[in-house]
Structures are given as structure tokens and as C-alpha cells.
Amino acid sequence: MLYALGLLLVPAAAVLLRAFRTDTGSFTLQNVRDMGAHQYVVAFRTSITLSILSAVVGVVFGGFLAYSVLSLQRPKWLRGALITFSGLGAQFGGVPLAFIFISTLGVTGVVTKFLNSAGLHLYPGFKIYSFTGLVIVYAYFQVPLMVIVITPAIEGLRVQWREAAANLGAADWQFWRYVGLPVLAPSILGAFVLLFANAFSAYATATALTSGQVNLVPVKVGSFLRGNVAADNAQLGQALATGMLVVVVVAMALYLWLQKRAARWAK
């Protein structure tokens, strides 16, 4: 554990310290100030927006999907198939995922061509390597991740609560309004933060898909690492990485705080 902690925290600390140093090693806030430059502010804004959007898509779509499958008892294999596939789908990513969507919704993608032949022209209004495209592609791992994370919580909803609510006079929506959703809230919240962090830290997929056309923080950090940007300011890359850490930490803290409020009734 100590080893893990070391391997994790030492680099993180290194990032943090370097972010406030000049090339020669003296303390400076210049890098942080540089981060305020327009393109980096935009990068953070785009990254955060993308992460929130794709997390919302994942939570909503994945939530309803998981709920629908879990509550239908008829084809028994459906449940197992969804869980297994989600376990696999949640780990999709990188260049292969980008290819798969280019093959599907790219300019010459199968679906694009099919829609063209039906008289529906996706391009040039839509581009798979755009912001919207990223939301769709990210959904491909966000939805399964949501399914995995939320399944235990949905299974934890007891039939008795439903029946007790109905017995006391609650209509369906009243059950959800007063019991179902409040009970699920902490889990949904947790899932949202997880999905947010998941999208926020995604690097390979974004790079492969957009080749830098969408201005995202991880992509920027990556280009610093690869030395694509003027090398005289490697510390700016460190500062950006620090910024990412800060965003993730803030998200986690927010999550813990909200969790405490949403679950004050739990053990």
C-alpha cells in the first residue's frame, strides 16, 4: 500500500511542485498565470463541459437501460448479457474506439452511407471528430460504466418498498418521487462523479478521434509531453496537469459532501 501510495503521490507531488517552478528551479506563479491564457481557459471549459455532458448522457441513458433490463424478468439471459457486455464496454477506449466510430459515423462510415442513401445527409452538419462527436463516442464507455455502477443500487431497491408505498396509496410517480429516487440518489450522484472523472481524464480516445481539433486539457497536456509545443515552457504542461488534478479533487470533494447530505439516513 505504501508502495502504491508512493508511486501515486510522488509523481503527483512532482507535478504540483514543478508547476510552480521556473526552468532554473526557483518558485514562480508565472505558469499558473500562463494557464489563464485564453486557449487554456477554453480548454478547461471545453473539457469540463464535455465531461459533464457525457456524464449526464451516461447517467440518464445507462440508468434507464439498467433499470429497464433489471425490472424485466422475462428473458432471463438479457440481464446477464447486459452486465457482461457492460463490463466489457466500459473499458472501451483509445484508438480502437475512435476507429470503430469512424467506421460507423465517419464521413464514409457505414451508418453515414446508409443514411445518405436514405436521403439523410449527416455531413457536413455533423462531424464525428467534433465536440458532439466526442459526446457520442464517450457515451460508448459511459453508458456501460453507468450500468455497472448503478446495477447494485437498483437491485437494492426492495420490492417491499414499492408494495408498501402502493399499499399506503402512492401512485407510481409518487413512489419514485418520495422513495425510489431519494434512495437511489447517493448512488446516482456517485456514478455521475465517477463518469465525470472518467470522461475528464480520457486522453487516448480524444486524441485519436479529433487529432487535436477539439481543444481539451488532456490533449494539451499530451502535446506538451510529446514536445509538440515550444519546449521552453515544459512547466506549463505541469501546471495544466495540476489543473486537472485540482478539477478531479474538487469533483471528489463535492461528491463526498453531497453524498453526506443525500445519504444522511444511511448507515
Binding site: 408505498a165 402502493a166 399499499n167
Partner: peptide, 18 residues
Amino acid sequence: ANKRDMGMVFQAYSLFPN
């Protein structure tokens, strides 16, 4: 069921946890 005006006590764990 929700219009039958009957009170029911279940085996266990039927209280709303929230």
C-alpha cells in the same frame, strides 16, 4: 392496490430507509 384503502404490514424491511 394504491386505491384499496388497506393497511399492510410486511414480513420485514418494508420501512422506507430514507
